Simulated assay, not measured.
Amino acid sequence: MDESSIARYILDRFPGIVPVQAWGETSFFYNPGRALPRGVYFATLKSSDGDNDRASQLDRPSVFRLNIGVGKAIYRSLFGAPPGRPAAGGVVDTAHDFTALDTVLPHPVYGWMSWVCVLNPGPATFESVKPLLAEAHGLAEQKFRKRLGAAGGVRSMRPTVT
């Protein structure tokens, strides 16, 4: 699997997703109709190290990481209790090798928030994360509805492209 294939899968499979490219990653927000300023993070594809995230060594040639925001129950079923929040610039305290390819892992920085990741997923591993993407999409929908309600149901004034 490559980044563009994964991005296509996400955009084709899950409605209401808006991709945003910034900081060496493509972030996928659930934001149907762009009703909220940003929407709700759902997943990201990251292909380079950032200031606070070097644990996966993404600056290796052709290495990228798929990050997925799953719920606590799914996270616990995979890895046990989420780790504590790391200090600024640190990584979560687990025994995982965050440089391992084609392996579902806790996210090295956001594992404490029940995010998981996989570097360069192969076809079989990607099949195993499809339910995780569906879980994350469902959670993003729920959070979106709450935020939209808190915002008074305000809709974007941007025209809809048809």
Rank of each mutant, 00 (worst) to 15 (best):
L58K: 00
V118W: 00
A88D: 06
A22Q: 14
G24V: 15
A35Y: 10
F42M: 15
L101I: 11
G90I: 07
D59V: 00
G71T: 10
P106M: 05
R38H: 13
S114E: 07
N67V: 01
G33T: 01
V104Y: 06
P121W: 01
A73R: 12
E25F: 01
P123G: 13
R34S: 15
A81N: 12
R65D: 03
T26L: 13
A22P: 04
P106G: 08
R38Y: 12
F98V: 06
F79P: 15
H96D: 14
I68H: 06
A73N: 09
L58W: 03
C117E: 00
V70A: 04
V104A: 11
V116M: 10
R85N: 05
L105E: 04
L45G: 05
T103I: 02
R38C: 11
R54S: 00
N67M: 02
V40C: 14
K46Y: 03
Q57D: 15
V40P: 06
A124C: 06
G80Q: 09
T103F: 00
D53Q: 02
V70I: 03
G69V: 02
G39S: 15
P61K: 10
I68W: 07
D49R: 04
Y41I: 14
G89R: 09
Y30E: 15
C117Q: 02
F126K: 00
G122P: 02
T44D: 14
E127R: 08
Y110F: 12
Q57A: 12
E25G: 11
L105M: 12
A81F: 00
F79L: 08
T94D: 12
S62T: 04
A87P: 04
S47L: 08
A100G: 09
N120C: 13
A43M: 11
C117F: 04
P82C: 08
A87K: 14
R60K: 13
P108R: 04
V40A: 13
P108N: 05
N52W: 08
P106I: 05
P32S: 07
R85E: 09
V104R: 12
R76Y: 05
G50Y: 09
P83D: 07
S27W: 11
Y41T: 13
A73C: 07
S77Q: 09
R85G: 06
P121V: 09
P108W: 04
V109Y: 06
V70R: 01
L105A: 06
S114P: 10
W115E: 01
F64G: 02
